[in-house]
């Protein structure tokens, strides 16, 4: 067991344990807080796999954007003084069906691509330049489509948040 293994298992343990807290915690705030550690653990795993750009983007988008938005939402929706934000279990049957479908498709993809896993990257290369060039050449259409969708979402959010003036 060398340093790589130790670090890998440490990050894997952080990810899995905090993910358990996210799912099983009754307190929404605790769940959101452990989500921070889940994202952090996943980012650590990306770094170990030499996907540094992905790791940093993961932190920027998920911790800096989505998690902050989540916490903000929780704070705005609850009463200021009450600490009482609990989660409950509802819609058990549809949730189980949906989870089974997601698990099934993930397992199917995993099983289908099991034999074609590429060799692990062993040397760190500058991924940013390559990613940027690929996004601007080969994947320019998906990239532009994604940006148009995000722009539409942005305009929609601004429209919904606008104060409605009486005529």
């Amino acid at each position: 067991m060398d340093t790589f293994d130790i670090v890998f298992y440490a990050f894997a343990a952080i990810t899995v344990l905090s993910a358990f807290v996210v799912v099983f915690s009754r307190n929404l705030m605790y769940a959101a807080c452990s989500l921070l550690f889940t994202f952090f653990g996943v980012a650590g795993l990306y770094v170990l796999l030499h996907a540094d750009f992905l790791a940093v983007t993961q932190i920027l988008i998920y911790v800096g954007g989505i998690l902050v938005l989540l916490l903000f939402g929780v704070m705005l929706t609850s009463k200021v003084i009450s600490v009482d934000i609990k989660t409950g279990t509802i819609h058990t049957v549809p949730a189980m069906i949906l989870a089974a479908i997601v698990f099934g498709s993930l397992a199917a993809v995993f099983y289908a691509t099991w034999s074609q896993v590429p060799e692990p990257v062993t040397t760190a290369t500058a991924t940013t330049r390559t990613l940027g060039e690929l996004l601007m050449t080969r994947f320019v259409l998906p990239f532009e489509v994604a940006s148009v969708i995000l722009l539409a979402a942005l305009i929609g959010a601004a429209f919904l948040a606008r104060r409605i003036r009486k005529p």
């Binding site: 940093v56 983007t57 920027l60 800096g64 902050v68 940013t128």
Partner: peptide
Amino acid sequence: INLGLFYVISISSLVVV
């Protein structure tokens, strides 16, 4: 790391949380 600048911007979001 060759992403130093990007890393510094993104890791500071931990402070907000």
